[in-house]
């Protein structure tokens, strides 16, 4: 019908700019990554001709495997610490009076207006052998004078938590805000202990917020590059560092592409899992 075709024209006109731009600068480049991973490198830092499996084959290399394993556990640990800290905060923010709520939310967001690099740098200064924390810990005898706080996987976890904690607090708070706290009273009334009520009623109640929060740390942590680069040192290297080294140090773009494919797949895995699980759990909502 005429009316419907007019609607179609209008829809394509309004959708065109973003569809075009994102196809050209998001889909096509991603396809290029897959294609270039199958190309040989040329000695001038460019891409050679012909096709090869070498880049993908070289991924099975003990060095890479160790880095991949470290990337995984750093991300898992960071996500876990974030959730453990963010859940009580989200709970607290949802229960506090409206005025304090706004104030605390502000306090949580404000530090993150500072540049990402500067926040990492601030930690580098703190953890520095000459820095305040090191001195305090060494003075109290908790660590020896030779122990380095900087340049290890622990420092990477610490700074990752610092960077992504607000992004876990906000979705958990948003879910807790919608939670009906009378349910907790009902649970207590029915004989549940405080922690039981929290674990069996509150946590399931904010399930969606928790899942979002985990993804908000876990996925960017997998792709971390700057944090391990500044505070990680060689023993804190992650896949991101390897990709950057292939690009900026050896100028081997095909090798970098192959590593990127690993990263793409490892990012897709948790996303797809969550989507599938959610679709199974709440069928009607998945239609949206």
């Amino acid at each position: 019908m005429k009316r419907e075709s007019r609607q179609k024209v209008r829809e394509s006109l309004v959708s065109f700019p973003s569809l075009f731009w994102l196809s050209l600068f998001f889909i096509v480049p991603t396809l290029f990554v897959f294609a270039i991973a199958l190309k040989p490198a040329n000695p001038y830092g460019g891409i050679g001709s012909g096709w090869t499996w070498d880049n993908l084959r070289s991924l099975v290399n003990p060095n890479y495997l160790a880095v991949a394993w470290r990337t995984l556990w750093i991300s898992v640990l960071s996500a876990a610490v974030c959730i453990v800290l963010a859940t009580p905060i989200g709970y607290y923010l949802a229960r506090v009076t409206a005025r304090w709520k706004g104030f605390f939310l502000m306090l949580i967001i404000v530090p993150f207006w500072t540049n990402f690099l500067i926040r990492i740098f601030a930690w580098k200064v703190l953890l520095h052998p000459e820095g305040a924390i090191k001195k305090a810990l060494a003075f109290s005898g908790l660590i020896g004078p030779q122990t380095s706080l900087l340049y290890n996987a622990g420092a990477v976890v610490l700074v990752t938590v610092y960077t992504f904690l607000p992004f876990t607090i906000l979705p958990i708070y948003a879910a807790a805000e919608k939670f009906d706290f009378q349910l907790l009273e009902a649970a207590r009334d029915l004989g549940a202990k405080r922690l039981q009520a929290f674990a069996k009623v509150f946590l399931p109640g904010i399930r969606r917020g928790l899942i979002t929060a985990v993804l908000f740390v876990f996925i960017p942590a997998l792709g971390s590059y700057v944090i391990p680069d500044i505070v990680g040192g060689p023993s804190g290297e992650m896949i991101g560092n390897k990709i950057a080294q292939r690009v900026f140090v050896d100028r081997n773009l095909p090798q970098a592409s192959a590593l990127s494919i690993v990263l793409i797949l490892s990012v897709l895995a948790p996303l797809v899992t969550v989507l599938v699980l959610q679709r199974k759990r709440d069928k009607p909502e998945s239609l949206l």
Binding site: V33, G46, I47, G223, V247, L263
Partner: peptide
């Protein structure tokens, strides 16, 4: 179309920055 469109707009938000950086680099180099 809009379901696809939404996916296309949403994905860049969840993709780690380094992936976007490297894929754009590949595009520009090629």
């Amino acid at each position: 179309l809009q379901r696809f469109h939404f996916g296309l707009v949403y994905t860049p938000l969840v993709v780690p920055e380094i992936l976007m950086g490297i894929s754009l680099l590949m595009l520009f180099v090629t």
